[in-house]
Amino acid sequence: MMHQTPLKIAVASGKGGTGKTTVATSLALSLAKNLTETVMFLDCDVEAPNAHLFLKPEFSDQKQVEVLIPRVNETLCTHCGKCTEVCQFQAIAVLGQRTLVFPQLCHGCGSCTMICPTNAIQENPKSIGILQKGKAEQIEFARGVMDIGEPMAVPIIRQLKKWVKSTPSQITIVDSPPGTACPVVESMRGSDFILLVTEPTPFGLHDLRLAHQVAKELNIPTGLIINRDNGEFKELDNYCKAENLPVFLRIPFQRTIAEGIANGHTLVDILPETILSFQEICQTIRNIVK
């Protein structure tokens, strides 16, 4: 068999609860059946990671994620306001005779420290989450988990992506966070393909449009999987046609599937015939990104 180039697929949806994780985990399991390729699963939904519930990995390695938060020495600070001007996140402010840091908004970029003319700023590490990796049978599994109350998902995702570079795999499946904000963009960045998951409802279509827009801005090719399909919502098909968005799979609306997933089973357990579908999807994606 020809040696394949590495492929990275991000699985995303404009909102939560569309079956994104179901698709991502089932895709990974299906591809892992082909023992000649190594599969890595990255759970980038760092705010509410749940792929481990389906893949049941055993973690063997762990790492703290820290950002460097500035601290202002008031005796050296002249309240010149240069740090405030350079900060893109309004995380540092000069208020009369005090310079205040807002750690919850700070991204630890270091710009304020660099620009301060009096060296009044020191940096202290602050933990914002952890990274974990291990194995779920043949699948290499890694995830980031954000500390409770820490709003800083992007640095965790960025460091997660960097951390797993030491475990090269032929296929990487990224489970993106729901939504269309910065963490989603960060998780998609660097992927070869974005697999969107939606439901055939007006809300589903609305969120799909937003997620699709993000993918287009990143200039990454996309395909769609429709979950809980009853074949009745024509607007979705019209959208796909108008946008040239290929539909790879329609997962039918069935009670057995919903119940199985609620009990922690993956789609490939419940409907083993989907293994083949997911393997074909991967082949189609390879042909598209080639």
Binding site: T84, Q90, A91, A93, L95, G96, F102, L105
Partner: peptide, 13 residues
């Protein structure tokens, strides 16, 4: 996009 309250507060101050 974020920290609007802080920026406005600094302007006011």
């Amino acid at each position: 996009s974020g920290g609007a309250g802080i920026k406005t507060a600094q302007f006011v101050a």
